[in-house]
Amino acid sequence: MNPVNYLYLAALLFTIGASGVLIRRNAIVLFMCVELMLNASNLALVTFSRLHGNLDGQIIAFFTMVVAAAEVVVGLAIIVSIFRTRHSASVDDSNLMKL
């Protein structure tokens, strides 16, 4: 199977994630969309690793996973605490810092 097809899949996933980030208001969904984008890029990285025949891409994919895990921990904690105080997970409602 042509490895380039994996790249098409990665682009598709990335686009879905990006559209989700732009369109959805729910913080959890937003978060999942960000994860989707991260995974799309992981897939692209691994594919490139295969194409070029070296391990650089796979190493970077591991980094991304670690960062994504850390981000999920912090991000979910923030979302949960916002939900507790404001009873809403919508990102548009959090506008205290807005001028």
Partner: peptide, 13 residues
Amino acid sequence: QNGYVRSYALSMF
């Protein structure tokens, strides 16, 4: 600077 994450993200994209 309208305070909507979406629009910031859009401008980033």
